[in-house]
């Protein structure tokens, strides 16, 4: 019997789910391996009966927490899909400010009673990664995810192999692709501490790495910050680079 897979989303742009759809012809092979029973972005059916839950998005409000816990209770395996589920996403930057400050900034046209805590959709939004709420079995990092890697993780799960998420910096794949290091042409990049597996797609097209896949397991953070300073960044600019996707690590250290 093929394992049943359900794909869910929380606070996110759903771009990672789109990457699954973007597998194109390979999605037919995926469908041969698993039964997709729920996937809001690609099909209208839904089901409460699944073995593997693949979850995109960050967990912001009590109602999200509750829904995720229900998913966790039903799934044998729970996979965090993408940077929002893995790290809390870019939206986690909002955690630097109070919910009220955020609401004032974003919904300043709304009537206060509509966005108060009395409305569950607006209650105390604080963005968290999935594993800060429930147990997560596997994580597919990235913003968006690398769809080739998604397929590899699926293959690994079905064959009892540890999902092949690399634990080396982006520089490794960047060098193998023979890219010009951004630092050598006046740029900066988080590649030396960021987790690889993306095939260095941003530096390949001239963009700097923002560590959307989080850090490697043992980042040489101090050396990285020294390098950013050496390359002329101000403390604020360094902080911005450090928090774009990875404020989770800073929050943990009580830095914010």
């Amino acid at each position: 019997m093929k394992p049943k897979v359900a794909i869910f989303d929380f606070a996110s742009c759903e771009g990672c789910e789109l990457q699954i759809v973007n597998l194109e012809e390979a999605i037919i092979d995926v469908a041969k391996l698993v039964d997709i029973v729920e996937f809001r972005e690609a099909m209208k059916e839904s089901s409460d009966d699944y073995d593997i839950a693949i979850v995109e998005g960050s967990i912001a409000r009590p109602i999200d927490e509750e829904r995720l816990k229900k998913i966790r209770a039903k799934a044998k395996i729970l996979i965090a899909l993408g940077a929002c589920a893995h790290l809390g996403g870019v939206q986690r930057l909002g955690n630097r400010f109070s919910p009220d400050e955020n609401k004032k900034e974003v919904y300043h046209m709304a009537r206060p009673e509509d966005i108060s805590d009395g409305n569950p959709y607006f209650k105390e939004p604080r963005h968290r990664a999935l594993d800060e709420v429930v147990k997560v079995d596997y994580t597919i990092p990235g913003c968006p995810i690398n769809r080739v890697e998604f397929a590899k993780v699926l293959v690994a799960l079905l064959t009892g192999k540890k999902p092949p998420i690399p634990d080396y910096p982006v520089c490794v794949e960047c060098k193998k692709k023979e890219n010009t290091c951004l630092y050598t042409v006046g740029g900066v990049c988080m590649g030396p501490v960021a987790r690889g597996g993306c095939d260095a797609i941003c530096p390949t097209y001239g963009g700097e790495c923002e560590a959307c896949r989080g850090y490697v397991s043992h980042p040489h953070e101090k050396a990285q910050m020294d390098v950013l300073a050496k390359y002329g960044l101000t403390a604020e600019e360094i902080m911005n680079r450090k928090t774009m996707f990875t404020s989770r690590y800073t929050e943990k250290k009580g830095g914010e």
Partner: peptide
Amino acid sequence: SDKCLGCGTCTLV
């Protein structure tokens, strides 16, 4: 080595 990023570049190139 305190300044090393451990990025592997020196070996890869």
